[in-house]
Write a protein that binds this DNA or RNA. Structure first.
Length: 750
DNA sequence: ATTAGGG
DNA sequence: CCCTAAT
């Protein structure tokens, strides 16, 4: 949970669910922001967003390059984050640090992605303050204590130091956590040493966000002050802070947890919370919320309903008034999944059948110093159990004191990755080291199987567009119903797959091997992984010697699969990931398209692999995922809900293409882009008439600016001249046309 | 589905 | 390249 990174985000968080496609564009973000001025993003949002995607496990290795924005970086970020999340489960605590550095190039583009980009200067508190955010578990004693000061600090610019910021965020995150339905109560203890300034300030605005004006329940809540006091007082535990220590006193946590369980009913807040949640997310059964949290947050929330968010720059902006409810819902929706999701990242790599608990448990040993948590850990997995609580702690190898935190690019992530890579192969027991992880947190789940609850709550719909099933023979009478046909096919497919083949699931390019995990746990949810889920056919395990160690690293597996057909070529997976995306309603992209377009691109390095995957291997299906929260999502939100589409890859026009374009335009003129397309780019599937139009536009612009200002592959001046000429000519033509029209009209009128 | 324009 | 509005 110590991953840190600097987040640059330029949009307002609440829209996350259906953020515009072009989020990566700075301009877009800006415009987006403009449109949603009222929804200033606050730390909370950031968290939510980050958290949302953190779960994603991107395959790519960390890259330190800042200049080339792109998937790589994005992936990097994600993977970094992922660690944090998975281990943490849902715990967000964001800590800020002023340590500088490489991590400055990240921004969250949408719920599902954290992108790294070349130093864009987004405006945000985070960025401005040059802060690194760190997600960690939250809720410490100090938080509670500091809560009363929240208001005071909230508007105090001078207090906008790291510590304060962290505190704020922390408060928010807590709130958030509370807010989420998955009642993962999180009691956290921060092993990280406290920053002096971090006396726990709550960013009230967040709270506001969560409360729906319309929600009577909330309104009825008691005054925040009281509530907070209350909660504070009740917070029994004193989580010790174990600064660098490898592990905290678990017992405290554990006890706390259990205590909470016992007390669950006593909290005054529960009714409220529950009510709220139920309304939107009925699926959660008997959720019991930690009294502390509940009271703390829910009660506090109302007070700040209309509070403002304090931006880093000191700006106070009104927060969410209008869409509160909406956002809240969305958020809760969106966040819900990952809150419950655990160890997703690890799961795929580790292949631990044991599940979450195993990972955690094994984790401790490795640390050596902290072995205690295990007891609770096992239970965690117990998501299955009626009530589980667990405490996980991570030791930090990292000199936190001196650095405060690691920077994403620097030590932190790299070391992380390195470590991961290195130990995986040998670590068959799921032992993992969490580098620099420290926080300890405990949460308890009460009620039914968490997983089940999750699933019942929202579903994941996949649409596999091109999945080739070798030798699928179906025989069915003409009189059969379609339904029967479907079933028959289903059976046939099942039979085949169940026999000699097996389906492999790729997530973010990584194989997901733990069949026991839920989709949610794995990271396949409507909130995430919309664009990185893939399937592949692999040989039946019986035919392929199973690895002795069920937990062997995914890397190994991927690379060592005995059967050539056993898996998608890594590249293919990646490609799919990058190009194909799941789209909500209709599937926008499919493998076919990917391939198609990819081939069109002369320089595509992946052509080969793609060919293989499609032809010889007959597999790799890139499904579209659309998910809607079942009962919770209002109909009108549906369409937007999963609208996370990946931007097309950039394909600069080659000189030849420009040539063709110019020629076509010279002939056809501007304004007939469809014809231009047909004439000159009919076979270039990836060039749409809009692209051509755009290209022409840029060509004209390029031709007008000085050569020094031009970028990219230089276009011969001769062509540019022709562009200008043609443009002038056709512009004139157009003008003439208009003139004539006008004349005609006037004539008619007269 | 196209076109035109702004981003 | 994306997104929208207007055709």
């Amino acid at each position: 949970m110590v991953l840190q990174k600097r987040l640059d985000y330029g949009f307002n968080g609440y829209q996350v669910p259906h953020i515009p496609r072009a989020t990566r564009s700075a301009r877009r973000r800006r415009s987006f922001k403009k449109k949603h001025e009222e929804n200033q993003m606050c730390a909370f949002d950031l968290l939510a967003i980050v958290a949302g995607k953190l779960l994603l496990d991107k395959e790519s290795a960390p890259s330190s390059s800042n200049t080339s924005a792109g998937k790589d970086q994005c992936a990097v970020v994600n993977s970094a984050v992922k660690y944090e999340w998975q281990d943490e489960e849902k715990p967000l605590k964001v800590e800020a640090c002023d340590q500088g550095s490489a991590a400055r190039n990240f921004f969250v583009s949408d719920l599902s992605q954290v992108h790294g980009q070349g130093c864009s200067s987004k405006e945000t508190l985070v960025t401005r303050n040059n802060l690194n955010l760190r997600l960690a578990s939250a809720l410490t004693k100090s938080d509670c204590a500091g809560r009363s000061n929240a208001e005071k600090l909230r508007n105090d610019k001078s207090k906008n130091d790291i510590g304060t910021f962290a505190s704020k965020v922390e408060g928010v995150s807590s709130e958030y956590r509370e807010f989420g339905d998955c009642k993962l109560e999180v009691e956290t203890k921060r092993a990280v040493k406290d920053e002096p300034g971090k006396s726990g300030v709550v960013l009230s605005s967040t709270a506001a966000n969560m409360c729906s004006l319309e929600d009577p329940v909330v309104l009825d809540a008691k005054p925040p002050a009281v509530a907070s006091l209350d909660s504070c007082a009740k917070v029994p535990l004193c989580r010790n802070h174990i600064p660098n220590s490898s592990y905290p006193t678990n017992q405290d946590d554990v006890n706390v947890v259990s205590r909470d369980d016992d007390d669950n009913s006593s909290g005054c807040t529960h009714p409220i919370t529950k009510k709220k949640f139920f309304r939107r997310a009925p699926r959660i059964g008997d959720r019991r919320i930690r009294k502390i949290l509940a009271s703390k947050y829910w009660k506090v929330a109302p007070k700040f309903k209309d509070a403002t968010v304090s931006n880093s720059d000191g700006d106070l902006k009104p927060v969410f008034h209008k869409r509160k409810n909406y956002y809240r819902q969305q958020r809760s929706e969106r966040l819900y999944p990952f809150k419950k999701r655990k160890h997703y990242a690890y799961s795929s790599p580790s292949n631990v059948d044991g599940g979450l608990s195993c990972e955690f448990v094994s984790d401790s040993p490795r640390k050596g110093s902290n072995g205690d948590a295990s007891g609770s850990c096992s239970r965690i997995h117990g998501v299955t159990g009626a009530s589980s609580s667990f405490v996980a702690q991570h030791t930090s190898f990292q000199p936190r004191d001196s650095h405060g935190m690691r920077t994403f690019n620097g030590g932190a992530s790299s070391s992380f990755m390195g470590q991961r890579t290195s130990f995986q192969p040998r670590d068959c027991h799921g032992t993992r080291t969490f580098n620099g992880l420290i926080d300890m947190y405990s949460f308890d789940l009460i009620g039914e199987d968490l997983t089940r609850r999750c699933l019942s709550f929202s579903s994941v719909k996949l649409r596999i567009k091109s999945f080739r099933v070798p030798e699928l023979l179906v025989e069915i009478p003409e009189s059969s119903t379609v339904g029967l046909l479907k079933r028959t096919v289903m059976e046939a497919v099942t039979a085949i797959l169940g026999g000699g083949l097996r389906v492999g699931v790729l997530l973010q390019g990584k194989k997901v091997r733990d069949d026991n995990k839920t989709l949610l746990q794995t990271g396949i949810s409507h909130n995430n992984q919309l664009d990185s889920l893939g399937f592949c056919l692999e040989p039946n395990p019986s035919e392929a010697p199973p690895s002795l160690c069920p937990e062997d690293s995914p890397f190994l597996l991927q690379c060592d699969a005995p059967d050539p057909m056993s898996r998608c070529p890594p590249t293919a997976g990646v490609v799919c990931q990058g190009i194909c995306t799941g789209s909500p309603e209709p599937l926008v992209n499919n493998l076919g398209n990917c391939i198609e377009s990819d081939r069109d691109s002369a320089s595509s390095p992946t052509d080969t692999s793609m060919d293989q995957s499609t032809n010889s291997k007959a597999l790799v299906a890139v499904p579209a995922m659309k998910v809607e929260a079942l009962a919770v999502v209002p109909a009108h939100q549906k369409s937007k809900q999963s609208e996370i589409v990946q931007r097309r890859i950039r394909r600069p026009f080659s000189v030849a293409e420009v040539e063709a374009l110019v020629q076509a335009v010279e002939k056809l003129g501007t304004g007939r882009w469809r014809d231009v397309k047909l004439r000159a780019f009919d076979n270039a599937k990836h060039r749409t008439y809009v692209d051509l139009k755009d290209k022409w536009k840029t060509l004209v612009h390029t031709a007008r600016i000085s050569p020094q200002q031009r970028r990219g592959e230089p276009v011969p001046q001769e062509l540019l001249d022709r562009v200008l000429t043609a443009h002038a000519y056709w512009s004139q033509q157009q003008a003439n046309q208009q003139f004539k029209h006008q004349q005609a009209e006037t004539c008619l009128l007269l």
